[in-house]
């Protein structure tokens, strides 16, 4: 059996971490959890997860925005796809900017709470493949992705 993909859940809300952990495990993923940005960052560097599920508006000093910036500026981990999650949405001016303006945060996908679990699952699967392509472990030819042996 192939190794399951490893997903890290970084959120200061223990209920959300617990729920997501159960959801992801039951869908065949391995999970890691961290309750703040600093711990999350340490774990990412040590464990090299395949995907980051990140609450961008955590109350800790080292926020989700900081995690985004740290991951994306570190060549060793910058290819890991990030899914941003927040209860704050467009009505409070929180929205990801995929163009990468410095004033905004850049994520591969953004979900507002409450998260639609089915949509999240579909996007996780797509982004895991995208992560492989970025790392050079797979190639995209037209619309198809070929995983290197």
């Amino acid at each position: 059996m192939k190794n399951p993909s490893k997903i890290i859940i970084i959120d200061d809300n223990p209920d959300f971490r617990f729920t997501m952990e159960i959801f992801l495990k039951r869908n065949g993923f391995e999970t890691l959890t961290a309750e703040d940005g600093q711990n999350g960052m340490d774990m990412i560097e040590k464990e090299r997860p395949d995907l980051i599920l990140l609450d961008v508006m955590m109350e800790s000093i080292y926020s989700g925005f900081d995690v985004c910036k740290s991951v994306q500026s570190n060549p060793d981990i910058k290819d890991i796809p990030i899914i941003g999650i927040s209860g704050m949405g467009a009505e409070l001016g929180v929205s990801p900017d995929k163009k990468g303006d410095d004033d905004y945060f850049r994520v591969d996908e953004f979900f507002e709470k409450p998260v639609d679990k089915e949509k999240l699952l579909a996007r996780i699967k797509e982004l895991l493949v995208e992560g492989l392509v970025r790392k050079g472990k797979a190639v995209r030819i037209h619309d198809r992705v070929y995983i290197k042996k």
């Binding site: 209920d15 959300f16 617990f18 729920t19 997501m20 209860g87 949405g89 009505e91 709470k113 409450p114």
Partner: peptide, 20 residues
Amino acid sequence: AILSHDIKNILEGLHGGAYV
């Protein structure tokens, strides 16, 4: 705006709890 944010967070908790 803030209330809608809070309600969304609570909804997340209720959805998540119900799922579990």
